[in-house]
Structures are given as structure tokens and as C-alpha cells.
Amino acid sequence: MSYEEYLAGDPVIVTAALTGGVHGKEANPALPETPEEIGRAAGEAAEAGASVVHLHARRPNGERSFAVDRFEEIDEAVRRHAPEVVIQHSTGGTGVPDEVRHQPLRTDPPPEMASLDMGPLNRYDHLTSENTRALVDSLHAEMVDRGIKPELEVFNDGHRNEVHGLLDRRRLADPVYATLIFGPGTLTRPRPRNFLTATDDLPDGAVFNTLGFGRHQLPFATMGLLFGGHVRVGLEDNVYYERGTLAESNAQLVARVGRLAEELGREVASPAQAREILGL
């Protein structure tokens, strides 16, 4: 994908990362945590232009859950409020045993998409989410078995090697879909030259999504728009609307990037268009 695709005006898929599993309402009271809150947030985000929702599950007090039935409760709520949206489950989970990481793939019905973290990343000062190749392969194998499209999460430059390595080891359905992630810590440093390098270095035919953490969300979404990619926004990745002002909702962040896309001449993809682009 490239500037030529931007010039062609291809539709842009907006993914809303509604809740996450790191911070919660202590960071922004508008962040949805319960199934009903997440379902309502999905409906509002879909109305604002999101065609994919990226989901984590939580206990009633906001703490992380990986339980199949909790994901099913959330999916049911999302379906009530946003019947057409593409559901994408997270399989991320720092400090969680590998077997537990498979659970979000085992809902009935399975999600259309699921995230696949491409390698290790540090959390806090003493934790690493290992994401070994063995885990990546076993998660991918289960996704294939259950007809789930992987969203390859590329947290840093080394993870691009892992994408190429995964393609050497396993066959991935076309198109390969990779989220390029920029931010602090283990993530790729959020600099435009790093974004350009990353987009140039993906496998041929790959489709990319752009994720900037915190204050990098809007500028990196804009770069994604300008280079023919897709964008992810939401309270999982950024709790602020602008410096010092908390975002009011996920939908507020989705609507802003939708306005930006349209000003730049790119149509915001409907869920049907997103399914076509992603080969779902």
C-alpha cells in the first residue's frame, strides 16, 4: 500500500479499540468495561464510521477476563447495538499462560477476526509479554481451524521480521493484514521516517492498519490515511481527545478520524466494504 492508493481514493477501514485490557475507568470514566457498555460503545462507534471493533473482556470491576462466556456476552451486546460491524477479539495477555490466550478464539460463534501479537514487548519494569513463535503458530493454527482472520500486531521493527518469518512457516490467507504500532517503550518510535520504513517493508500485497498510542493516535492515523492504509483509534490506545482533555467516548475519536478521511478524499468503509477489503 502506498501514496498511489491514497490518490486512488480507496475506502479506509476504521477500527475502534473500545476497551483494552491495560487501563480502565480510572484513566477515563467514559471507557466501557461491562458487556452492555461495550455493546453501546460499539453501536455509537459504528454509527460514527467504525466497521471493525477490537474487543477485550473484563470482569465486573474492570479487571481482565479471558473467559469464553464473557467474550460471548460482549459479542451478544455488540450484535444488539451494531449488527453489521466486524468483531475482532484480542488474544493479547501479558503474564497470562498460553492456553488462556486461546480462549478468545473459542466463542460460539467465533469472531471474524482476532489479533495475533508478533513478538515480545515489555510492560511496566519487570514484565514481558513473550509472544513466542510457538504461541504465534498455535494461535494462528487455531484461527485457521475456526475460520478467523488474523490481524498481525507489529509492535516494533523486529516484529516485521516475525511477519516475514510467519509467512515462511505458514500459509496466510490473502491479504495479509498487519497493524503497525507506534508509541513509547518497546513500540516502534513514533517518527514519520519509521512509519515510511515500516510500510515499505511489509510483504508484497499486505494491507496495513495504523495505530499510534496516546498523543500519537491522530498524527499516525493521518499518515495511515495519506499512505493508503487503514486506521485504528479508540480509548484502548488513547484516553484523550486533545492535550489535557479526556475523550468523551470512542465514537468521538472515530468521528474525528472519519472527518479527516473525508476531508482528505477517502471514503470511510462500511462493514461490507471492510469485509471485501480484508477477504472475510
Binding site: 485490557g21 491495560v22 487501563h23 480502565g24 480510572e26 484513566a27 473484563r58 474492570g62 479487571e63 481482565r64 501479558t94 503474564g95 497470562v96 499462560p97 488462556v100 510492560r123 511496566y124 519494569d125 519487570h126 514484565l127
Partner: peptide, 25 residues
């Protein structure tokens, strides 16, 4: 004196293989 991030709460509670003595700065 602050509420804990939900992910960090798994360390506080010693869930999975996490332990505050090892994993919490």
C-alpha cells in the same frame, strides 16, 4: 494512594504466574 490499572491488578492479586514481589516495581 491510587487506583490500580486493571492489568496491574493481576500482579497485585498474584493471578496466573504473576507475583508482586517479582513483577511490581
Amino acid at each position: 494512594g491510587e487506583f490500580v490499572q486493571p492489568m496491574r491488578a493481576d500482579i497485585c492479586n498474584g493471578r496466573y504466574d504473576l507475583a508482586h514481589a517479582d513483577d511490581c516495581e
